[in-house]
Nucleic acid binder design. Structure first.
Length: 285
DNA sequence: CGATTCCCCTGATAGC
DNA sequence: TGCTATCAGGGGAATC
């Protein structure tokens, strides 16, 4: 389940592999993947030729990231947006034989230096062609996004102000991408554990100091996870097909009823925002 | 405004 | 063997 560290790892891998490569040809196996999921039923007519024409014969000049969205900047002024959602993968290899070509490969990019595939078992992800910079900046997927966790605007004070305004559970706030982007189910639980705060605490009940612990935990957990190329719990892979190595450092996620690595008591499992949530009833206050 | 629930989709797993 | 139910959880949308 790609969250910010996984998406960032894919982006960094792709920069090494495909930056400055030319997109010669694109094979589209599942045209619906070029639309946002919410439009797939109401917009059955998909102009695949327009999608291909906009992207083929261009050169990849830059690969950026906003929240969990990867942004390819092309030399023809167009952009390509990719969201991996739950099971999406962007995989590159010089040889096609080294890639997992199956029914889940929705897009095949034939590049000047190899092959890039967009593979997504559950089809929640998307790959959009963006006509120009104006369309990019005004695109709905970027509206209502909160601060990047590593931006200078994201401060302890900012987080404290946001939490003071909220009567929601702290984990719901962390999952809410309009406050600060990047944390999904895995890292929310890990952040709460590191900050020693129970995930069901009401946001505005956190003290200034607790908020500081939470703030530091968000940055430290995400930073460490990026350093280890993310967490490969199930489907996630880096762009070269390798697994992320943060899995062994997980303290609570996926460990319900197992002993807490800190105090040894069994970890609790509850549901918050319809998400499985694991925490230590003793270490977290 | 928030909380809840359902939905998109497929694979893994459990139970009968 | 094979059917059915449940779970996984990023994000949008409908409902209360």
């Amino acid at each position: 389940m790609p969250e910010l560290p996984e998406v960032e790892s894919v982006r960094l891998g792709l920069i090494k592999q495909v930056n400055n490569a030319k997109i010669n040809k694109i094979e589209v196996n599942f045209p619906q993947i070029t639309l946002l999921p919410e439009f797939r039923k109401t917009k059955p007519a998909i102009d695949i030729e327009d999608f291909k024409k906009g992207l083929e014969n261009s050169q990849i000049k830059q690969i950026d990231r906003r929240a969990k969205i990867i942004i390819f900047q092309l030399d023809n002024g167009k952009f390509m947006l990719v969201h991996l959602k739950m099971t999406g993968q962007l995989l590159f290899n010089k040889n096609l034989d080294n890639l997992p070509i199956d029914k889940h490969v929705h897009l095949l990019f034939k590049l000047s230096n190899g092959y890039l595939i967009f593979r997504d078992i559950r089809k929640f992800g998307y790959c959009l062609k963006i006509h120009n910079k104006t369309e990019l900046n005004q695109h709905k997927v970027f509206q209502n996004l909160g601060l990047e966790p590593f931006s200078k605007e994201f401060t302890h004070t900012y987080l404290f102000k946001k939490l003071q305004l909220s009567s929601r559970k702290i984990k719901s706030v962390l999952l809410d991408q309009t406050i600060v982007v990047g944390c999904g189910n895995i890292y929310c639980d890990e952040v709460c554990f590191m900050a020693k705060i129970k995930p069901y605490r009401i946001a505005k009940s956190l003290t200034f100091d607790e908020t500081k612990q939470l703030y530091l935990a968000i940055k430290l957990i995400l930073k460490n996870a990026i350093k280890l190329n993310g967490t490969s719990f199930s489907n996630y892979r880096n762009s070269d097909g390798s697994s992320g190595k943060f899995l062994e450092f997980l303290q609570v996620y996926g460990r319900s009823n197992l002993p807490c690595k800190h105090c040894g008591s069994l970890l609790s499992k509850i549901s918050i925002s319809s998400r499985t949530t694991v925490f230590c009833n003793f270490c977290q206050k």
